[in-house]
Nucleic acid binder design. Sequence first.
DNA 1: TTAAGTGGTAGGGTTTTCCCTATATTTTTG
DNA 2: CAAAAATATAGGGAAAACCCTACCACTTAA
Lengths: 215, 215
Amino acid sequence: MIRVLIADDHNVFVEGIESLISGSSEIEVTQRCYNVSSVVESLRSSPIDVILLDISFPHIDDGLGLCEQITRIHPQTKVIALTMHDDASLIKRVVKKGAKGYLLKNTTKTELLQAIRTVHDEKQYFNESIMQILLNDEPRSRKSSAGAGLKPNLTPRESEVLALIAQGLTTQQMAAQLFVSAKAVEFHRSSLLMKFGVPNTALLIKTAMEMHCID
Amino acid sequence: MIRVLIADDHNVFVEGIESLISGSSEIEVTQRCYNVSSVVESLRSSPIDVILLDISFPHIDDGLGLCEQITRIHPQTKVIALTMHDDASLIKRVVKKGAKGYLLKNTTKTELLQAIRTVHDEKQYFNESIMQILLNDEPRSRKSSAGAGLKPNLTPRESEVLALIAQGLTTQQMAAQLFVSAKAVEFHRSSLLMKFGVPNTALLIKTAMEMHCID
DNA sequence: TTAAGTGGTAGGGTTTTCCCTATATTTTTG
DNA sequence: CAAAAATATAGGGAAAACCCTACCACTTAA
């Protein structure tokens, strides 16, 4: 029997996971923790094979710290990160802290059980969507924001101007570099702001970076 | 029966792979190619399910180009990259070109057969060592030349202003939100520009994102 | 206790961004 | 061919960003 601890401050989520697991004959939930300190206590009192750890518990850094602590003090206890964050850098950070698996909260029952079995078998578990995130190294879905997150089609000129803005150049400098007038550059910047749907250059840069149009 | 094509300019390696596969009852090597052009011809003449493609064939770019060509013209044919290069960026590039799997040349027979079955089943195949390479791949390599640095120490106010700038707020809006004057906000922005060593807000956002001070 | 250091708040003034409107050439598309 | 889009230019004006300087509150140290 694989003994599982669920650590999440969202009560309803803990219950949901537990009911999913309850159907399994080889896995049982023996502990539930709703705050960081109780996890440490639980591990002292009774042995646990696998921990399903909400990485934002309640904040990212708490979850990471807890993960590191667990894997250092109880190396035989395997940690699976369970979170809604689909960010490649976070996955890497979590694994560096000792997690053996990483699941998104929209995972399936099958995957969840498979992940528990896999890490209990001393192996790492990452499903295909996590794989994709690592390969693309960019955030995937912006939580069902309909259409509003797609990178706009940029003209060649707009792409050039965007790249130059990202290098910190002023309008004058860009104009000199592209051999066009400053007003032309301003027009292209305006087009970029409109296409990206942002009010100023600062957000333009941030949005473009998130969409990997620059960098 | 899964029909496999082996593309590699190292003769002895092709033979070795073929003899490994020959023991399988469900996989057979139907084609062998020792140069790029013969791969394209072979695909035209007879259908192939899986290609084991040496990515340095004979050079990296040839392999990548061929991979892209194959997956575009013959989307039903799955490409597994087979190489000795254990570089994360190469793995990502190969996958972007359409490869469904990536194997190092020191892989085992079991893994090789498993990989062929997996990609033939419309899934991607990456073993644990490839996984490790991707996970250890450091986020965002900075190519910044001079003393680019570590994230500066920010005062609480500066951190607040930085976060608000990253949200696209104007000076007025930030002032209202922080209950201070616009001039105060402007000063903090100036401090941020100085501490990050950048000339304007656009580069401030870019730099801060790269240093993970925001986002 | 005076002096130096740090963080927060501003004023004045210059440059840049941003928006609106217009015009014209070239390329793309229907 | 005609319509649409991309590119380039431009004036005027409001807003924002940016730079330099100065003052105040608080802490630390000579």
